[in-house]
């Protein structure tokens, strides 16, 4: 404490006032900087910044689209390499006119949701089990870590042998893909609960099941929802693999057919549909988080 006091600049200056005059540099230390808001200019500037922000947000993508289209018109990029935006739009219209997308979305979304429901529930239960009981961790962690590294795309023939060629096999692929993200995040969430909170619960004579119900699960919920968000994305991606197994329609099916026939324009439409679904999933999950986690601050960094 006394050491700190001796080194404090204020004390030094006070104890040696005579020397301060010999150090003209010191004058800089006290030079004033004006931080007060200047009436009018700030808000005008703010307005400008706002408009510039909006213009950039809309303008930059438009410029990219324009450059993309031009490079195709000028023959700089071959259409097989990267089809121009007009061709992608035409492919989109083609898919709509033939009813492919309208047919694919309900079919694929149902597959995704069923797989997500089963895989998500399994991952949640396994994650809770492994998170709460060491035995559970010992039993399930290694197999689930292995599940994560399975290259599902290479396993399509094996999945056919095991699970057939009906709807069931497709659901199994999606289920298998969604278990792990749910498991991992639930497990991490449960393990991440501050042990001090669990200790506090112990001092209030809460039973094990009460502690799980009232302390661990609510505190781990944000992490579980992160797992759900991730699993939802994976359930859509897994369609590409699942719909290689005797599919007649679906998003993954469209992409696979386009791939077989070198239709890069349709593949890019598929990517855009995926992007739209990703954004939708994100919005739904955000709403769900707001509902399920009213206690969490809505942190937005801007």
């Amino acid at each position: 404490m006394t050491d700190i006091a001796a080194n404090a600049p204020g004390l030094q200056a006070r104890s040696a006032p005579a020397v301060s005059g010999d150090r003209p540099r010191d004058g800089g230390r006290f030079a004033l900087v004006d931080l007060s808001p200047i009436a009018g200019s700030a808000s005008r500037f703010g307005h400008l910044a706002q408009w510039r922000g909006r213009a950039l947000r809309v303008g930059v993508p438009l410029l990219i689209l324009l450059a993309w289209q031009l490079s195709s018109w000028l023959g700089l990029v071959a259409p097989e390499v990267l089809p121009p935006p007009t061709a992608i739009y035409a492919a989109f219209v083609e898919l709509i006119v033939h009813g492919d997308l309208q047919e694919a979305l309900p079919v694929s979304l149902t597959r995704s949701l069923v797989g997500l429901a089963i895989g998500g529930t399994a991952g949640l239960l396994l994650g809770l089990f492994a998170g709460l009981w060491r035995t559970g961790e010992e039993i399930f962690d290694a197999p689930l870590q292995m599940l994560r590294t399975i290259p599902f795309i290479a396993l399509v023939p094996l999945f056919i042998v095991w699970f057939g060629i009906d709807e069931f096999a497709k659901i199994v692929v999606i289920t298998a893909a969604t278990i792990f993200p749910m498991y991992l995040n639930t497990y991490a969430g449960v393990r991440g609960v501050d042990p001090k909170l669990i200790e506090a619960a112990r001092t209030f004579d809460l039973s094990r099941s009460q502690t799980i119900l009232h302390v661990i699960l609510p505190v781990a919920l944000p992490s579980v929802l992160v797992g759900l968000r991730y699993a939802a994305g994976v359930s859509l991606l897994a369609l590409v693999v699942a719909e290689q197994i005797n599919a007649h329609s679906g998003l993954g099916y469209i992409l696979n057919v386009a791939n077989m026939n070198q239709r890069s324009d349709i593949i890019i439409v598929g990517i855009l549909v995926y992007a739209a679904l990703g954004i939708t999933t994100d919005l739904v999950m955000r709403a769900l988080e707001r509902l399920a986690l009213p206690w969490r601050p809505n942190i937005a960094l801007d």
Partner: peptide
């Protein structure tokens, strides 16, 4: 017996 710790140790989700 009850304990009050140095930190409040409240459950944020409750």
């Amino acid at each position: 017996r009850s304990v009050v710790f140095q930190e409040p140790r409240l459950i944020p989700a409750r």
